[in-house]
Write a protein that binds this DNA or RNA. Structure first.
Length: 308
DNA sequence: CTAGGATCCTGTCAGC
DNA sequence: TGCTGACAGGATCCTA
């Protein structure tokens, strides 16, 4: 699913193509995917894009905004008018979010939920599982929206002491469950949770109450590094999905140390990465670098792998 | 307040 | 081949 870096990538990509365009027509193929009156966005000009955690906001003229959450399977795909399909459209088009064939498919397709026709192109909101949504609201109410207002700071602005305090309060929960909570740290999802914990050498099942301040700081550092690397590489976009030679790639290859690497050797110690279940989510760990029971060998915890 | 589980929805894949 | 259940880059609501 699109997490913070993917949404940031979409924000940058769409800014390049859509700012100053007017929305000519809105087609809602799935009622639950579009909240609010669609007439309100008609004939409004796209002024800019903002991001709050995993939520994307499109600001329109006359104080109108749209908040978009992609949840698990949302995608935003922009196609310049008159473009054919296929991989030849890299230049004037953009696709980001949940990676799938829709990035290069003929659109609209079965998963298309909302279509925005603009002056020079079309923006498609695709969402296989219909968990995501587009919501119309006044620009001045964006920051007081229930979801956005409740967001904690993003990893780069999270202070170890503050997170440590939350860990004390929620001492009986596995650490992974807590860092996935957007009210604790904004923008982390299943990928970056696994990556951050691997970086910190902390097992996802460790209870928050057992974590030191140093480990807490390492987790934040790991989240920042993984997200920086992902944004740098372009998140999950058409460009990272379709390789130069036309084959399908995976943007995870560019930065993931553990996510979806079960069965492969740990990049730090060579032992096999395994997949387990924590807090109801598929979870990837190196059993050697991330010890579940601390008493036994707490040696490697805050060591952090700065080469050795 | 916290913790854990069910739930929204569609599609795919493993196992019979 | 066809059915069945598990599970998936998220967040919220319900219960204890």
């Amino acid at each position: 699913m699109p997490e913070l870096p993917e949404v940031e990538t979409i924000k940058r990509g769409l800014s390049k193509f859509c700012v100053h365009q007017k929305i000519r027509k809105v087609e809602v193929a799935c009622e639950k995917s579009f909240i609010g009156p669609k007439e309100v966005v008609l004939r409004r000009e796209i002024i800019g894009f903002r991001r709050f955690g995993k939520a994307l906001v499109i600001d329109l003229s006359d104080g109108v905004s749209m908040m978009i959450h992609l949840r698990m399977t949302g995608q935003l795909i922009y196609r310049a008018a008159g473009q054919g399909q296929g991989e030849s459209l890299m230049e004037d088009s953009f696709a980001g979010g949940h990676p799938s064939e829709s990035f290069v498919d003929t659109l609209p397709n079965k998963q298309t939920r909302v279509i925005f026709e603009m002056d020079k192109g079309t923006l498609y909101f695709n969402d296989q599982r219909k968990f995501g949504f587009v919501k119309v609201l006044p620009t001045e109410e964006v920051e007081t929206d229930k979801f956005i207002a409740s967001l904690a700071p993003e990893p780069w602005k999270t202070r170890p002491e503050a997170l440590y305090e939350v860990f004390q309060r929620r001492s009986g929960s596995p650490v992974k469950a807590v860092i996935l909570d957007q009210k604790v740290i904004a923008g982390i999802g299943n990928i970056y949770a696994d990556e951050a914990l691997f970086y910190a050498g902390v097992h996802p099942r460790r209870l928050c109450g057992s974590l030191s301040l140093a480990e807490t700081a390492k987790i934040i550092e790991g989240a920042c590094k993984a997200m920086d690397a992902s944004i740098e590489s372009g998140g999950s976009t058409m460009a990272t999905y379709v390789r130069a030679d036309g084959t399908r790639g995976d943007y995870l290859e560019k930065f993931a140390q553990v996510f979806r690497r079960e069965g492969l050797p740990c990049m730090r110690c060579g032992n096999e990465i395994i997949k387990i279940r924590v807090a109801g989510r598929g979870t990837h760990v190196c059993p050697h670098c991330q010890k579940e029971d601390i008493g036994a060998s707490s040696a490697s915890v805050a060591k952090g792998g700065s080469d050795d």
